[in-house]
Computed example of a mutant assay.
Amino acid sequence: MALPVFRGCSRLPSTFGFTRLFLSESVAVNRTGQTRLPPPSPAAVTAAVRPYSSDRGGLKPNQKVVVVGIPNPFMWIRTRIYYFLIRAYFDKEFSIEDFTEGAKQAFSHVSRLLSQCQFDALEGLVAKDLIGKLEEKCNLLPSSHKKALSADSDEIMYTTAGDVGIYYDDNGRKFVSILMRFWYLTSARLPEDTMEGTRVFQVAVGGEGEAKTKRLLTANYEFQREFTQGVAPDWTITRIEHSKLLD
Rank of each mutant, 00 (worst) to 15 (best):
E135L: 06
V29N: 01
R173N: 15
L140T: 06
R80N: 08
A28Q: 11
D129N: 15
L125T: 10
L185K: 06
S95W: 13
L3K: 09
T32E: 08
C138W: 07
A204K: 10
F223M: 11
F84E: 15
A151C: 03
E208M: 08
F94A: 12
Y221I: 03
G124D: 10
T198Q: 10
F182M: 04
F74T: 04
Q105M: 10
L125D: 04
D98C: 02
Y83C: 12
M157K: 05
K214D: 02
I81P: 00
I156T: 01
L141E: 08
V27K: 07
V110C: 11
E93A: 10
R87I: 08
C138K: 08
A103R: 00
A127W: 02
A188L: 06
F99G: 13
G165K: 15
W235L: 03
W183K: 08
G207D: 12
R36Q: 06
P71M: 03
L85S: 07
N30Q: 06
F107G: 01
Y52C: 02
C9Q: 10
S115I: 00
S115T: 00
S53Q: 13
D91M: 05
L246H: 03
L114Q: 10
K137V: 08
A44E: 08
Q116W: 06
Q34V: 09
A151D: 01
L246Y: 05
G69I: 02
I178C: 12
T160I: 11
A28F: 07
V205A: 09
K92Y: 05
A127F: 03
V200G: 07
I81W: 01
A204T: 08
Y158A: 11
A103T: 01
A2M: 11
L3R: 13
D234Q: 05
D120E: 13
T186C: 06
A106P: 02
G206D: 05
I166L: 14
S187D: 13
A47H: 00
P71D: 03
L122V: 15
